[in-house]
């Protein structure tokens, strides 16, 4: 089964890309504004001229440090997003030559819950799943026997898709 076909979450860096594209568009508008002022389409002073006037003679102050810390934090966030690989969202299922089948952990949690609910002593069941761990919580009238019975039922239901050692079952007997 090809790893290249694994479904993945949208890259975080895509959001950064959109932000940078919008910033680039903003810079473009600043440049065009200066031309607009020169052609008397806009009455206000040009922004680049105003920025040049402000820059000549600018002094370091407290705001400089505040802005610098903000810039460093944003820069680190950009670097983190650029280096973060796209998260896998699904687990492989089956072993097919003709293609690939991928199941979300939440779907498997749904099946696990259904399997747990079919165990005779189970009153209620709930399940949550990630790619690394599947947790099944049941309320049962007999916690001692339900633990292994639920684990067996869940593992049988998810056989070949989710490793049995990653399934965690916890049982509780309702308080009288």
């Amino acid at each position: 089964m090809s790893d290249a076909t694994a479904p993945r979450a949208r890259p975080v860096v895509g959001v950064v890309g959109v932000v940078l594209a919008l910033a680039l568009a903003g810079l473009g508008v600043v440049g065009l504004q200066e031309l607009g002022v020169h052609l008397d389409w806009i009455g206000d002073p040009g922004w680049t001229s105003a920025a040049a006037d402000w820059l000549d003679g600018a002094r370091a102050a407290t705001w400089t440090t505040v802005a610098a810390v903000a810039a460093i934090l944003v820069g680190l966030a950009f670097l983190f997003s650029a280096l973060k690989p796209r998260r896998r969202t699904h687990l492989p299922a089956g072993d097919l030559d003709t293609g690939s089948v991928w199941v979300s952990p939440q779907s498997l949690a749904l099946l696990a819950k259904d399997a747990a609910e079919r165990v005779p002593t189970v009153v209620t069941a709930s399940a949550t799943g990630t790619r690394r761990r599947l947790r099944v919580e049941v309320a049962t009238t007999d916690a001692a026997s339900a633990q292994s019975a639920v684990a067996a039922a869940v593992n049988e239901r998810l056989a070949g898709v989710y490793p049995a050692d990653r399934v965690v079952v916890s049982c509780q007997e309702p308080s009288q």
């Binding site: 440090t65 802005a67 610098a68 810039a71 820069g75 670097l79």
Partner: peptide, 11 residues
Amino acid sequence: GLALVAGGLLA
């Protein structure tokens, strides 16, 4: 990101 970090440190 590198430019922002470098600029921030310089500031």
